[in-house]
Amino acid sequence: MTRPISLAPLTVLELDPAEMVECAAQAGFDAVGLRLIRATDAEPLRPTIGMTPLIRETRRRLDDTGLALIDIEVLRLTPQTRIRRDFAAFVETGAYLGASQILVTGNDPDHARLADNLGELADLAADYALAANLEPMPWTDVANLQQGAAIVARCGHPNVGLLVDALHYDRALNTPADLAALPSDWFRYVQICDGVPERPTTVEALRYQGRNARLFPGAGNIDLVGMLRALPRDVPVSVEAPVLWQASALDRSRAALCGAREVLDLADADCRHLA
């Protein structure tokens, strides 16, 4: 079975969105994800909201390459968030580019308020044919799959999904059984990478590994095959694999895609065997 494989922004964070589309196409990806709002102050500040020249050029390259745009990122839901005031222009920009998914992080310890804001974001996104996807991360207020699932269930909105990142899933000691117990329609896409066997023991180390020191799919010890088998068989796969390797963005992208294809071949072969 074939399914779309997308290049995630964190894998080649030095590239702007237009450059990233070109890189993903040259590397052989089917799709791409784009970071329109930076995740840290250390990242370059680029004109990526609204009809800027960079955004228009990115749309042109998407059209020229034929790549799909899976997701745009990253929206943080905080206690101060006001959905339409803060995120309307972001959602409009994503719709102009042709995105279908929004990556959302939970940075609010009040999970009831977080669920309410997630639902309001889902309403706004639905107006533009996008969906909101909550990603559990160990350094946020939604630290694991169980907390994410509880918030999505509490939200109860049909336009909300749960985004599983392989590294965070593994570091939280989640299992394929945990995934299989959840509604399949919650999963709109999945992020994969690999990791070293030793799990970090501090939040700072988890954050550093997540942003800088992952491994390409198949190069570590995360049970990616088991994880993928527990998810819908046609779910798009985004390869989020920032690695400590001084190679070009194109070479890193090609290596990431090669690893992802090998892992997906194993997962899909196992699925055919079980069928």
Rank of each mutant, 00 (worst) to 15 (best):
A247T: 06
R261L: 14
R171G: 01
E57Y: 09
C271H: 05
D108C: 15
D170N: 08
L15H: 11
I72M: 08
T140S: 11
P183Y: 02
Y169W: 15
D86K: 10
R261I: 12
C193W: 04
V164D: 08
T81P: 10
G218C: 07
V32L: 08
P176L: 02
A31M: 02
V243T: 13
P136K: 09
G210V: 05
A126T: 07
V160I: 05
S238N: 04
S6H: 10
N107S: 04
N221L: 14
R214P: 11
D127A: 13
A115M: 03
L103T: 12
L103N: 10
E120M: 01
G226Q: 04
P109E: 14
Q191P: 03
D71A: 14
S248D: 07
C23D: 08
W245E: 11
G50T: 01
A149I: 08
A95E: 00
L118M: 04
H111T: 13
G106P: 08
V74N: 11
T93H: 03
R56V: 12
D223L: 05
I222C: 00
L167E: 01
P200S: 13
A260M: 06
M1F: 05
D165T: 04
T175N: 04
A219I: 03
R85H: 14
H273Y: 09
D251C: 07
L231S: 03
V160H: 07
Y169I: 00
D178H: 14
H273C: 06
T140C: 10
L266M: 03
L274E: 15
R82F: 01
A267Q: 10
P109H: 12
A8M: 08
A112Y: 05
R38Q: 15
R207M: 08
R46T: 09
A267E: 13
R38A: 14
E43T: 12
A153V: 04
G94H: 06
L13Y: 08
E198K: 14
H168Q: 09
E262R: 13
L75F: 09
P79H: 00
L274Q: 14
G156C: 01
D165W: 03
A205W: 13
R38V: 12
D141A: 00
S253V: 06
R56Q: 15
L250M: 09
R3L: 15
L163Y: 09
P136W: 05
L163M: 13
V164A: 01
L13A: 13
N221G: 13
Y96I: 00
P17Q: 06
I70N: 05
S184M: 13
L182M: 06
N174R: 08
E22S: 14
D268K: 00
A25Q: 03
D86V: 05
L36H: 07
F90K: 06
R61E: 11
M51P: 15
Q146E: 15
F90I: 01
C258V: 03
V91C: 04
Y208T: 12
R59S: 04
T202Y: 02
L173C: 00
V243Q: 02
F29I: 11
L75R: 00
R261T: 01
Q80A: 10
D223C: 06
E262N: 11
L15P: 10
V263D: 04
N133A: 09
A172M: 08
R85A: 10
C258Y: 02
P4E: 09
V152R: 02
R35K: 12
L274Y: 09
R207L: 10
R85N: 14
E120G: 01
L54C: 14
V152M: 07
